[in-house]
């Protein structure tokens, strides 16, 4: 068991002792158990799964951020964290459409392309997580 904190500019989303945390990083999913090596890396949009012994795992959806593993404490610093059923499908669809349109139709600089790629990935990921959750319930 170790202490996990999930922090966004809107406040502390989660703060408790946990058994395992799984986050999505640029190198794929990373599971963190107790005594994980010290690491600092980028978090990309995806699911955050928190496991506690003898309990159903808790799931969140995150956008871009970083995860800082320091000894007995893990901090996830993300821009936005959503409870899965609070994802705004309409907003994400709008973001996705805007990004796709820009990427297809306009001549973009390298930086602009990267920005819209990121926006597209974020919207796609959140929509996918929302869709999966709906299937599970249905």
């Amino acid at each position: 068991m170790y202490k996990l904190e999930i922090v966004t500019p809107e406040g502390i989303v989660y703060s408790d002792e946990v058994y395992q945390t799984v986050v999505n990083t640029a190198d794929g999913e990373m599971g963190i158990l107790e005594n994980h090596m010290l690491v600092l890396t980028n978090v990309i949009p995806g699911k955050i799964t928190i496991e506690k012994e003898g309990q159903e795992p808790i799931e969140y959806a995150s956008t871009y951020g970083v995860i800082d593993v320091v000894g007995d404490k893990v901090i996830i610093l993300a821009e936005e964290i959503y409870e899965i059923d609070k994802i705004d499908g309409e907003k994400e669809t709008k973001l996705l459409e805007e990004a796709e349109m820009k990427l297809e139709t306009e001549e973009l600089s390298e930086e602009e392309r990267e920005r819209y790629e990121k926006q597209k990935f974020r919207a796609e990921t959140l929509l996918r997580i929302l869709e999966e959750a709906k299937h599970k319930v249905g």
């Binding site: 500019p9 990083t25 690491v39 600092l40 890396t41 980028n42 970083v66 610093l77 821009e79």
Partner: peptide
């Protein structure tokens, strides 16, 4: 120094700096 920064310091820093300006 004991930290393992992935993929590179520069890339994590860039991500953080972008978060900084958004924030």
């Amino acid at each position: 120094v004991q930290y393992n920064i992935e993929p590179t310091k520069e890339q994590v820093l860039e991500n953080l700096l972008k978060q900084y300006i958004n924030f």
